[in-house]
């Protein structure tokens, strides 16, 4: 579940993506999958005429076929339509969570890198503490404090991921601060604020954003996990994790209710991972440090 994180942290350390052997056609396919998911999230009507909440009890629990590609659920709703409509919620949740995590990471990381010795110590200690808590449990803890719900899930996931990005930003910022070009800029008499805005932030952010691509997959997975546990979106909204959770009760009789939304999550995460790693491999070589 949090598997991607390790690669993320590891690659940051080694500055080199594992799985650099993913062949180019694979990257193209993955990019196409992501593009499709994005299109569908923006305009779900392109792929399906039905509405995700249309109930049709007569055709409940129909298996996959030409009428209903992914079958129908216990209320006769078309699973394909629901998966298509679920893309928007799921992608948005992941995007919001990773965005919040990166933003928090930038604040923490820059504060640690620029805040002098005591600032660095405090923030390092804080990230150490947060990193010691398993991310899923940390997210659950936040949900327990804030209560269930979509917005709270986003915050919970962001909190769970923030230490990773905080540390990453700090490492990158320290590297940039020690680099020859910052020395050259100091030598030109640039003020600290200009220096940070012109050189430190843009150069530290590049690798972080590339890694955040992979992190987006992780966030998406966490979001669906929390929904799956009944802590995120609430029925009847079509959200992949939630649909999967609803399908759990029908595994023996109607496997398709749960399997297809799960496949959508998995496929998206794989595509994100492949594209993210490709970007990593590409930009790690170009950073030129």
């Amino acid at each position: 579940m949090t598997a991607v994180d390790a690669v993320l942290a590891g690659a940051a350390r080694r500055r080199r993506a594992p799985g650099r052997s993913v062949p180019r056609p694979g990257v193209l396919v993955a990019a196409a999958v992501l593009a499709l998911a994005a299109c569908v999230a923006v305009a779900p009507g392109l792929l399906t005429d039905a509405a995700p909440t249309d109930i049709d009890p007569v055709h409940a629990l129909v298996g996959p076929g030409t009428d209903h590609w992914f079958g129908t659920d216990q209320l006769g709703r078309d699973v394909f339509t629901r998966v298509v409509y679920g893309a928007r919620t799921s992608l948005l949740l992941g995007l919001a969570a990773i965005g919040l995590a990166v933003a928090g990471g930038v604040v923490l990381g820059l504060a640690a890198a620029l805040g002098g010795r005591s600032g660095e110590r405090i923030i390092t200690w804080l990230t150490d503490v947060l990193l010691a808590l398993p991310p899923v449990l940390l997210a659950l803890l936040v949900v327990a404090v804030l209560g269930a719900g979509t917005a709270n899930t986003v915050v919970a996931i962001a909190v769970a991921l923030v230490p990773v990005y905080g540390r990453l930003v700090r490492t990158e910022a320290m590297l940039v601060l020690r680099s020859g070009y910052v020395e050259a800029a100091v030598g030109l008499g640039l003020r600290r604020g200009v220096l940070v805005a012109r050189h430190v932030l843009p150069n530290a952010l590049g690798p972080v954003l590339v890694l955040a691509t992979v992190g987006f997959g992780t966030a998406l997975m966490y979001a669906s996990a929390l929904s799956f546990l009944g802590l995120g979106s609430s029925p009847p909204s079509p959200e992949w994790g939630l649909m999967l959770s609803e399908g759990r009760d029908f595994l023996q009789t109607a496997w398709w209710i749960g399997v297809f939304p799960g496949a959508a999550i998995t496929l998206t995460v794989i595509a994100v991972t492949v594209v993210g790693r490709y970007l990593q491999a590409r930009f790690a070589g170009r950073a030129g440090r």
């Binding site: 595994l251 399997v259 794989i270 991972t273």
Partner: peptide, 19 residues
């Protein structure tokens, strides 16, 4: 296979194996 494995959410993998 490794790539697919590390991208697969536990809960979905469990459901597929169960099925």
């Amino acid at each position: 296979v490794e790539l697919v494995a590390l991208s697969t959410p536990h809960f979905w993998l469990g459901i597929v194996l169960l099925t």
